[in-house]
């Protein structure tokens, strides 16, 4: 598994790099003379830590470039990503030591906060990349998502066609149930599998739109008609229809889960990437502004 081996790349080589970086930064931090001023970014050690941090941020950002340079032989993407994870984590400590635990409502702390958002979203991404691919794969049973959709399409078609041979109320229920099956949708709907499915239920009192969460209500509705089936063929059709609808239910479930897992696998990037850009801008400002008034 590529995602697991990220951490174990070449015997966790970059873990050691990160530990050495943290140890070195801690020594620099500790050597600050506390007589004149508390540890902060303005001592020579603070400047060194800040320079290391800034260079790290720039290099960590370059992963985006390396990832897209398919012809590059400058180290494997896997190695880069492994280093990205470890050194990015170390950055959290380097930057904290750089600022000497001084925070405030200013552009400097803004950079720090943005950096934290990037790093912690990265931690979440790492967690997702380690966990979700397996879950997604087992949910799809090794196939692609399009196979599930193809199956759903065929089941929709078959169910509709079979329902035409049943009572009109059944046909309307199945038709409306298929038409009003929701999958995915907005951010919230994708991430939390919000199910807004309905179907049209015909009864003696008239027709009504009924919630069809997990497609269960539609199956129940069709199944209810089974004992009242008059002709043998109708009963057989209804039975066949129930089987189709149950298969369809399973596929819809899988798809919903697939959309959710894939969403959580990717959502962190919507924080990680834009906040990296914001961080780069804030970082440049942090450096420039420091020398405005120094």
């Amino acid at each position: 598994m590529i995602h697991r081996s990220l951490l174990r790349y070449r015997g966790a080589r970059y873990l050691w790099w990160a530990l050495i970086l943290i140890a070195g930064s801690s020594v620099l931090y500790a050597t600050q003379n506390r007589d004149i001023q508390p540890p902060n970014g303005g001592t020579w050690q603070g400047y060194v830590l800040g320079t290391i941090g800034a260079l790290l941020i720039v290099w960590l950002t370059l992963l985006a470039v390396r990832k897209r340079s398919y012809r590059s032989t400058n180290g494997s993407v896997q190695g880069w990503t492994s280093a990205h994870v470890y050194l990015g984590s170390a950055l959290l400590i380097v930057a904290t030591l750089h600022c000497g635990f001084q925070f405030g409502w200013n552009v400097h702390t803004l950079s720090y906060v943005l950096m934290c958002i990037v790093i912690f979203s990265g931690f979440f991404g790492l967690y997702s990349y380690i966990n979700n691919p397996q879950l997604i794969s087992s949910n799809r049973e090794g196939g692609a998502r399009s196979l599930l959709f193809a199956e759903l399409f065929e089941l929709d078609k078959q169910s509709r066609s079979l329902s035409q041979r049943c009572a009109p109320a059944v046909a309307i229920a199945v038709d409306s149930g298929i038409e009003r099956t929701t999958l995915g949708g907005g951010v919230y709907a994708q991430l939390f599998s919000r199910d807004h499915s309905y179907f049209l239920r015909e009864s003696s009192k008239g027709s009504a739109l009924v919630r069809n969460v997990d497609q269960q209500a539609l199956i129940d509705h069709v199944a209810e008609r089974l004992p009242r089936a008059e002709k043998g063929t109708e009963a057989a059709n209804l039975q066949q229809l129930i089987i189709l609808l149950c298969r369809r239910q399973a596929v819809v479930r899988r798809l919903r889960r697939d959309i959710r897992l894939s969403g959580w696998l990717k959502i962190w990037l919507y924080f990680h990437v834009p906040m990296t850009v914001a961080l780069l801008v804030a970082l440049v400002l942090h450096i420039v502004v420091t020398f405005f008034y120094w």
């Binding site: 998502r145 193809a150 399409f153 798809l255 990717k266 959502i267």
Partner: peptide
């Protein structure tokens, strides 16, 4: 398989 296009299934 292209039925996926009928849904918003990606962020």
């Amino acid at each position: 398989g292209e039925f996926e296009g009928a849904f918003r299934a990606d962020l």
